[in-house]
């Protein structure tokens, strides 16, 4: 049995597990998407952001 089919049977067929999968999937997707976007933003603006210069002013 292919992975997809077994996943389908064990998780997606039942409402309770389906919604659990949706909630967990949302959580992990949001976390990784957010971290990836911030990483892109920070690398594009390296040296200009407060996080890049704050070490000069913190003691």
């Amino acid at each position: 049995m292919s992975m997809w089919a077994s996943l389908n049977r064990s998780v997606f067929k039942k409402t309770s597990t389906f919604f659990l999968a949706a909630a967990l999937g949302t959580f992990f997707f949001e976390r990784s998407f957010e971290l990836a976007s911030v990483a892109i933003f920070e690398s594009l603006n390296k040296g200009k952001l407060w996080n890049d210069i704050k070490h000069k002013y913190e003691h």
Partner: peptide, 16 residues
């Protein structure tokens, strides 16, 4: 300006 552009942040050293 270094903040000109779709993805460009402000230059915080310059703001300071």
């Amino acid at each position: 300006w270094s903040h000109d552009g779709w993805f460009k942040s402000l230059d915080h050293a310059s703001v300071r």
